[in-house]
Simulated scan of single mutants.
Amino acid sequence: MCNHPIFWSFRRCPYAMRARLAVLGAGLKVELREIVLRDKPQAFLNTSPSATVPALRLGDKVLDESLDIMVWALKQRDPQRLLDMPDEGWQLIARNDGPFKAALDHTKYAVRYPDLDPRAERAKAAAVLDDLNARLQGKPALFGARDTIADLAVLPFLRQFAHIDRAWFAAQPWPGLHAYLNRFMASDAFARIMPKYAPWRPGAAPLWFGG
């Protein structure tokens, strides 16, 4: 049994991205194992009950939800005080993970949902983003001058939504939201979680992340 955390990830998955952000913010060191979703290794399937990324093995314990991984990491170390936020932050995360993510998927993968109107679904997502833009007026983060776990949890999904139709997103009257996303994508943290790695294979040398 390995005595260090093993972090299964997929580079572009927003759930995996936010978990990597938290591990990085905590300054923890994990063994990163990048996978290809269409060719999941058996060692990963043996780890993740849901067969989804991210998954974190801690000895004989597995964390299989991205938010659980984020909270675990930041409870180990939280030098940026990311867990220090109003209770409303957890409500924003729940809205992001529920109604917003559903509308995002219905927009991005409209062909999978022929009974739904993608324009109506995009409007549902836009209503959430209208609120976030209003919250960001005059400040760089959701709750003021610094990021919290809510920002880390929401930003990868905002990025995913913006990439569905970049021209449409850029044309929306969301100056606070545009600045918020641009700051994130220009950040050192974003650069550090997004390098491309070869997919993990049995016997491969460990690839360390964070620390």
Rank of each mutant, 00 (worst) to 15 (best):
G27V: 08
P175H: 01
W8S: 04
A102H: 04
V71I: 13
A19D: 11
A179N: 02
A189N: 08
R112Y: 13
D151N: 02
G210Y: 02
F209S: 01
P173R: 11
W174A: 12
R122C: 02
R166D: 13
P173N: 13
P175D: 08
E34L: 01
A170T: 08
R135P: 11
A103S: 07
A170E: 14
T52W: 07
P173D: 14
R20M: 10
F44T: 07
P202D: 11
E31K: 00
A179T: 04
M185V: 15
D68V: 05
G211Q: 01
N3H: 15
K139I: 13
Q160W: 03
L56A: 14
R95I: 06
L67P: 05
L177A: 05
V154C: 11
A171P: 01
M70H: 12
D97V: 00
L104W: 10
D64P: 00
S9I: 00
L207F: 02
R20Q: 11
P79C: 09
K61D: 14
F143E: 08
A186M: 03
S187T: 05
P206M: 03
W72K: 02
V30R: 00
D105C: 03
I69P: 11
F7H: 08
L58P: 11
A145K: 12
L56K: 13
D147S: 13
P199F: 00
E88G: 15
Y113A: 12
D39P: 07
G138R: 05
Q160Y: 06
F44R: 01
A127G: 13
P199E: 01
D87G: 14
Y180G: 06
P199G: 03
P79D: 08
L152V: 08
L158D: 12
K61H: 13
G27R: 03
L82V: 06
D165I: 03
L45M: 12
A191G: 07
D78H: 13
D87L: 06
P14C: 10
Y197W: 12
F143C: 08
V128Q: 15
R12H: 08
N133S: 13
Y15M: 09
L37T: 09
R122Q: 11
R20D: 07
A43P: 02
L177Q: 06
Q42H: 04
V71Q: 06
M1S: 14
K196S: 13
L152M: 11
V71N: 07
R112D: 15
V71P: 05
R166I: 05
N3W: 10
L132I: 14
T52S: 12
F44W: 04
R18P: 08
D105E: 14
D105N: 14
N3C: 11
R20H: 02
A186G: 09
E65K: 00
L28Y: 04
D60T: 10
A22C: 14
N133Y: 08
N182S: 15
R77H: 15
H106I: 00
L142C: 08
S187A: 09
A120Y: 00
M194W: 05
Y15V: 05
P49M: 03
G25L: 03
P199C: 03
R33C: 01
H106A: 14
P41V: 03
A125S: 01
D97K: 00
G27A: 07
T47M: 04
Q42M: 06
L74M: 11
K75N: 15
G203S: 07
F44N: 07
V111T: 14
P118D: 02
P54D: 10
N133C: 09
S66V: 01
A120C: 00
D39Y: 02
R192W: 00
